[in-house]
Design a protein around this nucleic acid. Structure first.
Lengths: 217, 217
DNA sequence: CGTAACTTGCACAGCTTTGTGCAAGTTATT
DNA sequence: AATAACTTGCACAAAGCTGTGCAAGTTACG
């Protein structure tokens, strides 16, 4: 562990190892959120003992991992904006999918588990964005008005997680997953499936552009 | 523990204690699915040691608890039938809500956790019923046809669990929960919110009849 | 090169939990 | 009242984990 006041600057390989540990933790905890530090260290090619050279405790590692992830997602979504609240919501869903795909299990832990508190700050902006989209949508009549905003916002969020979870066990191409998460989000806020489909198909912003390598057709 | 070949019949209080343990486990595990046997025994007013007089292992207790629950739910839902697939699906959702409300966390463990295997048998009938409703609904055009039956069925199931989860943290009157789980189910299969509302409001079968004691308005 | 920074292995304490064995009690049942 | 059935407390083994101390190595860096 780095001395309290390092006389020399920290070594390069040390910080690399720190990164390795975080990366390993991401992989391992994504497979099994309650895996041991032994497993994480092994994945990183280091010894369990040396984990404590970088993180004071298991919790420390977990918290850092999770807050980093939350910040990453938040920064990827902060730019999302669109006059039409339906499109805005769909955009949020879609971007979220792309960010979180591959870290699904971790994401769920980060949002649901005991560490939710640590991510709440970073995710607050996204949640606010969702709420405002819903408020606008209810105001202009494009979204259901039979449920209060707060509950609807939670249901939207949970539904996105459901799609993530389901696609973990029953894989989906990136393109289909992208579309599905949008469809389900729009369904929750009250759109019939044909309407939801045309909202997506109508806008170039919502077309699945990015990756070409799909898992399954 | 009862002898391998009891010379006398088992005592009444013993079987009562067995029930107490199951009931306690229901409560405790519902609060925290990974609680210890100590906690369960305490809730039942017994000693940890005596748990092993009734169940060979922690897993034994858990499995028995969960399969009992699954059977209970299954038997409550087996009679559900209706010519209109939308109504059939809504009925399933509604009955399920009434059965599972109050055991939400356990239910989620039972369906998702490592014990899912033990409940699969009992729940197969329900799942088949859901699938057939969806198939019928897709055939007559009342449900979305842009997703395969299997995936849609899973999404329906997961969505019901989401409503259960959300209502655990943000309580709902029995009446509202009942309605919400139906609304969300119908939303997933493709109905717009007004259509879903009229499906529910139109039929007396779907009116919330049962309990008068709601939690919150 | 020299030294501080880092890794490692081992040992150890500590915690929590499961599952058993056993002796001593209590209680339902015959 | 006799006795089998049951509960209990205690002690114990075993396992799995976290976190620390320390001595002996490597390795980057100035």
């Amino acid at each position: 562990m780095p001395a309290s006041t390092p006389l020399r600057s920290p070594r390069r390989d040390a910080t690399e190892n720190r990164e390795s540990l975080l990366a390993a933790a991401r992989v391992v905890f994504n497979r099994n959120p309650s895996a041991s530090l032994e497993a994480v260290a092994a994945e990183a090619g280091l010894s369990r003992r040396s984990v404590y050279g970088h993180f004071a405790s298991r919790d420390d590692l977990l918290v850092e991992l999770v807050t980093m992830g939350a910040r990453r997602v938040a920064s990827a979504l902060e730019s999302v904006t669109h006059p039409d609240p339906l499109v805005r919501l769909a955009l949020i869903a879609s971007r979220l999918w792309r960010e979180v795909e591959g870290v699904r299990a971790m994401a769920i832990v980060a949002v649901r588990g005991p560490l939710a508190h640590h991510t709440a700050g970073a995710l607050a902006a996204i949640r606010a964005n969702v709420r405002s989209a819903i408020t606008d949508g209810q105001a202009d009549g494009s979204m259901r008005s039979d449920l209060p905003v707060e509950r609807l916002a939670r249901l939207v969020e949970d539904t996105a997680l459901v799609v993530l979870e389901d696609s973990t066990e029953h894989p989906l191409s990136a393109r289909d997953g992208d579309r599905l998460v949008m469809l389900m989000t729009l369904a929750v806020v009250g759109l019939g499936w044909r309407d939801a489909g045309s909202v997506i198909d109508g806008r170039a912003e919502l077309a699945h552009t990015w990756p070409a390598e799909g898992d399954q057709p």
